[in-house]
Simulated assay, not measured.
Amino acid sequence: MAQTKTFSQKMPWNDRAGKFAPFKATVLVLLALPALWLLYRTLTGGPAEPTALGPRPYIAAIHFVGDWTIYLLLITLAVTPARRLFDWSKLIQVRRMIGLAALAYILLHFVLYIFDSKWDLGFVVTEIVKRIYLLIGFVALLGLVALGVTSTDGWVKRLGGVRWNRLHKLIYIITPLAILHYYMQSKIDVSQPVLMSGFFFWLMGYRIMAKRGYKEGFVPLALLSVAAALLTVVVEAAWYGIATGVSVERVLMANLDFSFQIRPAWWVLFAGFAVTVLSEIRKRLKPAGASARGAPASRPG
């Protein structure tokens, strides 16, 4: 009986007591959807193409899975702000699951790259050593592997809370490394990496504010959103200036021209203000005297 209970407790869709948890099961399904969508597109095609991924299916799959790795890293980092701002204590139950999903996707990203290299491991190693963007991505992968291996309760006990927390703050380094890898393999158009950078700035800025006692409030969050958007513009201008020689003025003017495309900084600003307004609405609708729910944020993320 004890063995059955232990086994059931290990199932990702169950809670710590081994009982089915609908919220965790829903999140698990959502995390699997991108991989299932990729599988569907791989197995479907037409007369012209064997798969729906186009003429270079491995490259398309590698980019798709890599994108989702970064999305999941950012979602992992968003758990703590969302839990605090929206009083959503259940989010803490799925943070580890989201982090492990990011690990699964980055491993799939790497395996697909090996497939595309025709399983020539010598070539893969040589390319990682020769190409800086591959080396950066590989370091991010190793970091995520370390966090995934030590994510269990057993490792928390072995390392102790303080050392475990210190180790898992590596996510603050792994995420920007993954985004930098994204920049470098995107070549000319870096709109998506710039957008991911902006969200990362907001999430890290929130942590800095929270340490100084500003965990919520319209003015601090609004100022954070403006600062993250401005920093996004600066990074975009700097990247284009260094990588392509495009002048800073042209990038700045592009951010003020909405006729062709809304630049990433505006999406960062919009998302930041949306969070600000929604958190204020939540706070005002909260019953007077209600205590904040949720366990203390003793772990990074």
Rank of each mutant, 00 (worst) to 15 (best):
Q3L: 14
Q3F: 11
T4I: 13
K5I: 14
K5P: 09
T6S: 15
F7T: 05
S8K: 09
F20M: 14
A21S: 15
P22F: 07
P22W: 05
F23C: 01
K24H: 02
T26L: 14
V29H: 03
L30D: 00
L30K: 01
A35R: 02
L36C: 10
L36V: 13
W37K: 08
L38S: 03
Y40G: 13
T44P: 03
T44H: 13
T44I: 03
G45Y: 06
P47D: 10
A48T: 12
E49M: 15
P50I: 13
T51Y: 08
T51R: 02
Y58W: 15
I62F: 14
F64N: 04
V65E: 03
V65M: 08
V65Q: 08
W68H: 08
L73C: 01
L73S: 02
T76N: 01
T76W: 02
A78W: 00
P81S: 04
R83E: 01
R84Q: 07
L85K: 05
W88H: 06
I92T: 11
Q93R: 13
V94S: 00
R95D: 00
L100T: 08
A102C: 04
A102D: 01
L103G: 09
L103K: 01
A104T: 05
L108T: 02
V111K: 07
L112T: 13
I114F: 04
F115S: 14
D116T: 14
S117Y: 15
S117G: 15
K118S: 14
D120W: 06
L121A: 10
G122D: 12
V125A: 14
I128H: 12
V129R: 15
L135I: 08
I136V: 01
L144V: 00
V145G: 06
V149M: 13
S151P: 05
T152L: 10
D153K: 12
K157W: 11
L159M: 14
G160A: 06
N165A: 13
Y182M: 11
I188M: 15
S191Q: 08
V194S: 14
V194Q: 13
V194F: 14
L195T: 10
M196C: 07
M196H: 04
S197G: 10
F199R: 03
F200C: 04
F200Y: 12
F201G: 05
F201W: 05
L203Y: 01
L203K: 06
Y206C: 10
G213M: 04
G213L: 04
P220F: 04
P220S: 07
L224R: 07
L224Y: 03
S225W: 03
A228C: 09
A229Y: 05
L230C: 15
V233M: 15
V235A: 10
W239K: 12
Y240E: 08
G241N: 13
G241M: 08
A243K: 14
R250K: 10
R250C: 02
N255S: 02
L256H: 05
F258G: 00
F258D: 00
F258K: 02
S259C: 04
I262R: 06
I262L: 09
W266V: 11
W267G: 11
F270G: 06
A271H: 09
G272V: 05
G272H: 11
F273E: 03
V277N: 00
E280A: 12
A288F: 07
G289V: 10
G289M: 11
G289D: 06
A290E: 15
S291R: 15
A297K: 12
G301L: 07
